[in-house]
């Protein structure tokens, strides 16, 4: 495993054809669904975030399979997977790495932290102290680590899948806005329905399906898929629609802080991936609408009144979706 800086996107191999893309996506989805029953939509979105080079925040109550999803996704792709269990005593250097003195070389040698991998599972991210959480800021956005004045590039594909528990707040440090904004999407898994839960019981009677999971794609394939997704056409009307949506979050009376331009960018990237996963070479507003809540909701800061009134940002984004015209000139649909 090497940690040299390597500009991945520029020299990557040729993009995949839509058919190959779709086939690979189906393979990964089938693989993950073997572990997480009845959550194909969530899994799909999670994969979309990965292929959009975004980071994923899985936020749900304990025991619904956040970590399972993250691990299954990681196992399906043959790449380096690192796991960081965020504990209150975790230090930033545990994440990024540290320079230690090598007596033989009589010099400081950089010991890379857990972040140096392709897929990083950050479990219970809100249990670490804010300073440790802050260590992720640079890695996630700039895909590099700076330690002791030296900057180390991270190899692609690079994705952080973090989980957190929204209910149990004691002893936790909620993610600051800047940190939340770096996650492309926040997904909730939710309880499985009766049939899915029964299937889950059956399957896990003898063994843990996670252990039987075999990778169906490798890092190189992921890189090619990322490149293919970037080629998906974005019509001017669609861009306008996305901008209108994001603008609507900023002007919404229930929102104190709206979505950032980074949100716009990431929404469009995810949209492209979703279109490509559907076998299309052009994106549709339907794709945007599927992604708007996961991509936008966690970035918004509602007003105090909204919070007190029991409103949440998902409802606000859904409401915005219901009101922003798909085509900006009136009378058209």
């Amino acid at each position: 495993m090497t940690f040299e800086s390597s500009p991945v996107q520029q020299q990557g191999p040729a993009p995949l054809s839509p058919q190959e893309f779709k086939a690979t996506v189906e393979a990964i989805l089938t693989n993950v669904e073997w572990v997480i029953e009845g959550k194909s939509h969530t899994i799909r979105l999670a994969l979309a975030v990965m292929l959009a080079e975004g980071h994923l925040l899985l936020e749900d109550v304990p025991g619904v399979g956040k970590t399972q999803l993250a691990k299954a996704l990681a196992r399906s792709v043959d790449c380096s997977v690192r796991r960081i269990q965020f504990t209150p005593d975790l230090l930033p250097s545990d994440v990024t790495g540290v320079s230690i003195f090598d007596p033989e070389k009589r010099d400081f040698v950089f010991k890379p932290g857990a972040i140096f991998g392709n897929l990083i599972l950050g479990d219970e991210i809100n249990r670490a102290s804010p300073k440790t959480q802050a260590a992720l800021l640079e890695c996630m956005e700039e895909r590099q680590v700076t330690v002791d004045g030296n900057t180390y590039k991270l190899r692609g594909p690079f994705m952080v899948i973090a989980t957190q528990n929204p209910v149990e707040m004691e002893g936790t440090y909620p993610l600051p806005e800047a940190q939340r904004d770096r996650f492309a999407a926040r997904l909730a898994i939710g309880y499985p329905d009766v049939n899915a839960e029964l299937a889950l019981l059956d399957r896990r009677e003898e063994y843990n399906p996670l252990d039987a999971l075999r990778p169906v794609a490798d890092a190189e394939m992921i890189v090619r898929m990322i490149a293919a997704a970037r080629a998906v056409h974005l019509a001017p009307e669609l861009k306008r629609y996305v901008v209108d949506l994001v603008a609507a979050t900023r002007s919404n009376a229930q929102v104190r802080l709206g979505a950032s331009p980074r949100a716009t960018l990431q929404l469009l990237r995810c949209t492209q991936v979703l279109a490509a996963m559907d076998g299309r070479d052009f994106a549709l507003p339907d794709d945007v609408q599927q992604l708007a809540v996961p991509v936008l909701a966690h970035r918004l800061i509602p007003t105090t009144e909204t919070t007190m009134g029991g409103g949440d940002t998902k409802a606000i984004v859904s409401d915005i979706l219901r009101h922003v015209p798909v085509v900006s000139h009136p009378g058209r649909y």
Binding site: L284, P285, D286, Q289, L321, R322, H323, V324, P325, V326, V327, P330, R332, Y333
Partner: peptide
């Protein structure tokens, strides 16, 4: 009734 916020497919 077709809202303006419906995409063609939804409509």
């Amino acid at each position: 009734a077709l809202a303006e916020s419906l995409t063609p497919r939804q409509a």
